[in-house]
Amino acid sequence: MRSSGKIMEATLEVIAEHGFDGVTIAGVSAAAGVSRQTVYSIFGTREVLVTRTMEHLAVEVMTEIRSRLDGPETVRDYVVEMVIGGRRAVRDIPAMGALLRLDGINPVLHPDVVQHAIPVVRDLLSPLTALDPRVAEVLDDIVLITTRLGLSVVLFDDPSIADDDDLRAFLLRWLPASMTVPPG
C-alpha cells in the first residue's frame, strides 16, 4: 500500500478512536508507521489530511450505497435503500460513526449540513427519472425529504428499528404519501 493510503487508513483509525479533535500529524504518522515529514510532504496540513481522508471515505461509501440502488423499481424503494445504505455505513465504519459524536468538531452537526448534503443526495437520486420521468417535476422535493430523512435516521438511530429489515418496514409503511409522484 502506498504511503498516502496507509496514512489515510491510519487517520480513519485515529478519528474512530479519538474523534476529529484527536487527529494530530504525530498521532497519524505513528499509527501509519511513517515519519511526520512523510505526512507533511503528502498532505501539508492536518486539515488537508482530514479533508482528503474523509473525501476518500465518502467516495467509498457512496460507491457502496450506489451498489444497493441497482434493484429498486419505485421512487419509494430507491429512497428506502439509499437511507438504509447510509445507516449501514455509519454503523459499520467507525470513522463514520465518529461523525455523529457530539463532542468537539463535528462536520455532520454543522449548521449548513443540509445544504452541503443536497448535491450528494441529488446525484444519488438522479437515476430516479429513469424509473419514472415524472419524477423530474418533483425531484427537488424528493431530494430535500431524503436528505432530511437520511440525516435523521443516522443522527437519531433508534434501537426499536434495529436492523435493515426493521428500518425498511418502517420506511415502507410511512413513505408512500411523500414519495408519490403527482399525475402527469
Rank of each mutant, 00 (worst) to 15 (best):
W174F: 13
A136E: 13
I161V: 12
P182F: 07
R148A: 14
Q115F: 05
M8N: 05
A89C: 13
D163V: 03
S35V: 06
V135R: 05
V121H: 00
G184Y: 05
F170N: 08
A31D: 02
L167H: 12
D103L: 01
G44C: 13
I25N: 10
G184V: 07
A130N: 14
M1K: 03
P183K: 07
V90P: 06
R148H: 15
I142E: 06
L99M: 13
R88C: 09
T63Y: 01
L171K: 13
N106K: 01
V121S: 00
V135I: 08
S3P: 00
V75A: 13
V138M: 05
V120E: 00
T51K: 07
M8L: 06
D141H: 11
V135G: 11
A31N: 03
V83C: 07
I15Y: 02
V143A: 09
G5N: 08
V135W: 06
W174V: 14
V83G: 06
M54C: 12
L131M: 11
Q37F: 02
G85Q: 02
S35F: 06
A31R: 15
G85R: 01
F156W: 11
G71R: 15
R91G: 10
E137L: 09
R101W: 10
S3F: 00
L171D: 11
A117P: 00
V114K: 06
V120A: 03
A16D: 08
G86Y: 04
E73D: 13
G22N: 09
V138K: 03
V34W: 01
G97T: 07
N106Y: 00
R101Y: 04
S3E: 12
D132C: 06
I15N: 02
I161S: 14
V181M: 12
D158W: 09
R68S: 12
G97M: 11
V121Q: 00
P107K: 00
R2C: 08
V79S: 01
R134K: 11
F170Q: 10
R88H: 13
R87T: 04
A130C: 08
E17I: 02
L171Q: 14
